[in-house]
Amino acid sequence: MRRAILILVPYLWLLALFLVPFIIVGRISLSDTALARPPYLPQFSWDEGIWAFLSQLDFENFWFLTTDDLYWKAYLSSLQIAITATFFALLIGYPIAYGMARAPEEWRPTLMMLVILPFWTSFLIRVYSWIGILSQEGYLNQILLWAGIIDAPLIILNTNTAVYIGIVYTYLPFMILPIYSALDRLDGSLIEAAEDLGCSRLQAFWLITVPLSKNGIIAGCFLVFIPALGEFVIPSLLGGSETLMIGKILWEEFFNNRDWPVASAVAVVLLLILVVPIVLFQRNQQRQAEEDR
């Protein structure tokens, strides 16, 4: 009985937080847009029965997504932005995590706190504050102008650069924390052993430190990549009109076109694209758990 409940809880969790919303979205994606409340048909009614309802559903909206290059371009552009941002987050996050793991023991809680601290402030306010930093009259340009590094203000806000900055900044802790936890567990004598066996410092880093923090790197990359792919807030606040991301397209379908079915179809495809990395991530986590045992 106890065992049954233990097994049931995660499944109920999955059902309530993933499956039910997914079915609702999936069902809308198979409907047709209509001028009604809510704005799609068919609506389920007990009188007509379940078969009459199901027979009206079709995959037209998914087919529609293939008729306009906008959609696959937006998916591709989102992928590219998410991958690039993940790469930069890794590039910046790894040295930070490495520095934290090598820092004296008594400093580490403070450093950890500094990494987590931004989460205490609203995500929106933090993104808004980047507008203040990056705008043409913003602090960054003022400092650079004052220092004489540039003559005319840099145009960063409303470009893809600002989107990268926003995504990397926002998700950096998700990159740092798993890598830090991997590096923290790394036995320092392994590095000494590698040096003892003929490695230079750099070789020891590539041959020992990097492979042994691989799981942290993978976890960090997924934790940045997955939310970055569907990101809407950051590109809409920091990005320019050229920034093409699927989150923004979804917004337009939903709000501007009032086409909930197509918007749902876009969301379902996004989810399917995400399922691959999520499953890979899950597997990585599982393997790591097994290795730790």
């Binding site: 036995d187 004598s189 392994l190 000494e192 052993a193 590698a194 003892d196 066996l197 020992i208 492979p211 042994l212 691989k214 290795e291």
Partner: peptide, 12 residues
Amino acid sequence: NMMFQSYALFPH
């Protein structure tokens, strides 16, 4: 060469 107390075998 050194044999470490913890052996320091490369786990990967």
